[in-house]
Amino acid sequence: MIERLIERLRAAGCVFAEDEAALLTEAAAGDAAALDELVERRVAGHPIEYLVGWAMFAGSGSPLPTACSSRGTAPNCSPLPPANYSTVDRRCSTCAVAPVRSA
């Protein structure tokens, strides 16, 4: 089963097919229908991070940003960083952003 999943992911262009197969299998938690849906979505081009709900960031798994963070705001936070800060986007398909203090 896992070998066919790896072959399917690789045929779809997934460079890390073995790792992605393991992540998708774990995310499906033994539910064959859920695994089929996750694989279909991955083959269709959905980012693996969105399908499993987390991304590796700075050496640890991090939850993906919410709609609030994608707008640059979060509850109880200013929508813009203070004047002496800039926003940095790591450009790693996870929308991870961080305020960085300017010199």
Rank of each mutant, 00 (worst) to 15 (best):
L35K: 03
L35V: 02
L35G: 03
D36F: 01
E37V: 13
E37Y: 03
L38C: 09
V39H: 01
V39L: 14
V39N: 01
E40S: 13
E40D: 15
E40H: 10
E40Y: 02
E40K: 13
R41D: 08
R41C: 04
R41T: 01
R42M: 10
V43A: 04
V43W: 03
A44S: 04
G45I: 01
G45F: 05
H46V: 11
H46L: 08
H46N: 03
E49M: 11
E49I: 08
E49N: 14
Y50S: 03
Y50D: 08
Y50T: 00
Y50C: 01
Y50M: 07
L51K: 09
L51G: 09
V52C: 07
V52D: 04
V52H: 06
G53W: 06
W54R: 11
W54I: 00
W54F: 09
M56G: 02
M56D: 07
F57W: 10
F57V: 10
F57D: 08
F57H: 15
G59L: 05
G59C: 04
G59E: 02
S60Q: 09
G61Y: 10
G61N: 12
S62D: 00
S62H: 07
P63D: 05
P63Y: 01
P63N: 03
L64G: 05
L64A: 05
L64N: 05
P65M: 04
P65I: 10
P65D: 04
T66C: 01
T66E: 03
A67L: 09
A67V: 07
A67D: 11
C68Q: 14
S69A: 13
S69R: 14
S70K: 14
R71G: 01
R71N: 07
R71W: 08
G72D: 02
T73R: 03
T73V: 07
T73N: 04
T73I: 03
A74L: 14
P75S: 06
C77L: 08
P79V: 07
P79L: 08
L80Y: 13
L80S: 13
L80Q: 13
P81R: 02
P81L: 11
P81S: 06
P82V: 00
P82M: 00
A83I: 12
A83D: 15
A83G: 10
A83P: 13
N84T: 13
N84A: 14
N84R: 15
Y85N: 03
S86R: 15
S86A: 15
T87S: 12
V88R: 13
D89H: 13
D89I: 07
R91G: 08
R91W: 08
S93H: 11
T94Q: 05
T94G: 14
C95D: 12
C95H: 12
C95V: 01
A96L: 02
A96Y: 06
V97I: 11
V97F: 02
V97K: 15
